[in-house]
């Protein structure tokens, strides 16, 4: 509809649409919360698919093989480290998710920045508590 009315204009391309990364330092907390929420959400969804696939094949191979697969993975330090990352992604996504559900009930919209900082601080604290459980 607007297409026919559009005069000779310069289309600045898709990069304008996705985000102004050039000005990332100018992004406000609400936008960072969105970026982090989306990133952790995609990470968790990807992990969900991998989790079900690996677990499934592991179990269908038999009990001994299942145990071996788990122990083989857990003996790698990088796997443990990635699990800490996964835990961090879950904790932030959960806490920021609670923040979003609060907004949906129109609670705390005035203190959204503080709530974002709170969710970051709480995530950090919970993940720090969790680190020994994952790495030991």
């Amino acid at each position: 509809m607007s297409q026919d009315r559009r005069v000779d204009s310069y289309d600045r391309g898709r990069i304008e649409d996705v985000g102004r990364w050039k000005d990332w330092a100018k992004h406000k907390p609400g936008m960072w919360a969105f970026y982090l929420h989306r990133f952790t959400g995609l990470v968790l969804s990807f992990y969900l698919v991998m989790h079900l696939t690996v677990l499934g094949t592991g179990f269908w191979l038999g009990h001994t093989e299942y145990t071996e697969i788990i122990h083989g993975l857990e003996s790698l330090f990088i796997v443990k480290l990635l699990e800490v990352g996964l835990f961090a992604a879950f904790v932030f996504h959960a806490l920021n998710g609670v923040r979003i559900v609060m907004f949906d009930m129109t609670i705390g919209l005035d203190v959204q920045e503080q709530l974002f900082y709170l969710s970051i601080a709480l995530s950090f604290a919970v993940v720090m508590v969790g680190v020994p459980f994952f790495l030991l």
Binding site: Y66, I70, S75, F90, A94, G97, V98, V101, G130, F134
Partner: peptide, 27 residues
């Protein structure tokens, strides 16, 4: 989402905090 905060939290607590991922066996 709200359900998963509880359920996934429980899942992490059981598999990683109580049992420990390295101690998980089929048994």
């Amino acid at each position: 989402g709200v359900g998963l905060v509880v359920l996934l939290g429980f899942h992490f607590a059981v598999e990683h905090f109580i049992v420990g991922a390295a101690n998980v066996t089929a048994g």
